[in-house]
Design a binder for these strands. Structure first.
Lengths: 249, 249
DNA sequence: CGCAGTTTTGATTTCTGTCAACGTCTGTGG
DNA sequence: CCACAGACGTTGACAGAAATCAAAACTGCG
């Protein structure tokens, strides 16, 4: 049967890359064939690639930076955000393994927003020109990219709806459920439990609230037995009821 | 000197199409050569096209509709919005002459959001397959579309920042200034004056506020002599000061 | 004229932010 | 091993922004 060997060694820290390579667009496109450690024999990357590792809390790039490279996250969590002149920030999306750091880099050098590592982040970058050339040879690829773009835009719109029309409770519950779905689709969630490396100020910046208020809402959720957070891991204890909180309107 | 003849006849209603065809992407792409009335001799549309006129306040399409056509607005204003189950709405963008109604229709049949005419709207639709075929023959077109997409996504992000991190005053002022910029870039604004067919509930739905509060903020703006609204037309009386309101943070 | 959709205004309530104090946790360095 | 600093989380009192409710005036239109 040759079942995959179970990892006995306890893995601490961010989710392993291998499990997400399968759903990473760079892999899917044929641009990347997995992390170097896994590259034995024919599984070599098709495109020149640079790989970097960034410690937690470090800025990966700034709002005004220009880039020739398109980076894909292999491991860890990051956040893309816009900072206003008074220092307040709006997180536009959390970047998980397999995500492109700023899809706008596929077409132009401007990232348009700041990206910050939440956990330690490992990412691989491809030259935009290489990807573009690839894109022109394979018309199928265009559809894949288009679908990715549409997903991203759809999520941006849903964010706007959440921020414009939902209460603090709903926003936070929806953020958690969104993350769970995205992790699950990458095989990075186990049932109702998921990695949750976010600090409350990340949740606040993503939901347009303050960290203090996030603390109060999360406490309320816990008091009602909806969720449990411990050791950078979150479990949804009452999925149906929690879903109701997120979908009140 | 041959100065442009001043329009003596008072134009009532939405802005004329001709002035916006020049900046319409359908025209730019070579898919469309202007409104039928203007089609004399060689200036024929390159692609089969259907043209429709919708009265004000009518829904153009619903959230779940599927379409084979990609519609471009020729005349009038529309709004794309998402409606929640309790009836509250978030307007995602106002669609002006030259805009694509739902860019997601370029790549798939799902519009993802509802579109409603604000004024009477005239629009022309092209078959998605035709546009896609065109796109594959002209690599230059791809860049144009990509740029359009990025603009749209950028605006979606800015909306999220506004909704998440700005006060009512800022949001409303920014909405007005955004509209003015977009109209000006299409030649549809005269100095500090612009068409303003929006009802206060449109402004409310776009800014995540209530119509009552919008009324109070607009009254405040007027009381301070920042703007003037009359007869569906808006003038910014103190541009610098108004800009400051919009950019407080 | 009458009616439905708007806009205005004021009184009141609800939600979320601000401020401040305090407790916990983690890593650092002596 | 302990002391310490800095980031993080919790809690309560209070303030401010915007929502809600309600009533009335206004607008455009058939």
């Amino acid at each position: 049967m040759n079942a995959p060997a179970q990892l006995k060694e306890p893995y601490s820290g961010p989710a392993p890359c291998v499990s997400s390579c399968g759903t990473c667009p760079a892999h899917d496109f044929g641009a990347c064939h997995g992390i170097p450690e896994a590259m034995n024999g024919p599984a070599a990357a098709l495109l020149p690639v640079s790989e970097q590792t960034i410690p937690a809390r470090r800025v990966i790039f700034r709002q005004r930076d220009m880039h020739d490279m398109v980076p894909f996250i292999c491991r860890g969590w990051a956040a893309s955000a816009i900072t206003l002149s008074d220092g307040s920030r709006q997180i536009l999306s959390f970047l998980l393994p397999g995500d492109i750091i700023s899809t706008s880099l596929l077409f132009g050098p401007a990232a348009h927003c700041m990206v910050e590592a939440i956990t330690e982040v490992q990412y691989r970058s491809f030259r935009r020109d290489d990807l573009k050339a690839m894109l022109l040879t394979d018309p199928d690829l265009l559809d894949k990219i288009a679908r990715m773009w549409m997903d991203g835009k759809q999520r941006a719109y849903e964010l706007a709806v959440d921020l414009g029309r939902r209460t603090a409770d709903e926003r936070i519950a929806r953020l958690i459920l969104n993350l769970k779905d995205r992790l699950a689709s990458r095989g990075l969630a186990e049932g109702e439990t998921m990695d949750f490396p976010l600090r409350q100020h990340h949740v606040a910046d993503a939901t347009g609230l303050t960290a203090v208020h996030v603390s109060k809402v999360l406490s309320e959720f816990r008091r009602n037995g909806l969720i449990e957070i411990s050791d950078r891991s979150l479990t949804i204890l009452k999925p149906a009821e929690f879903q109701r909180v997120a979908t009140m309107r």
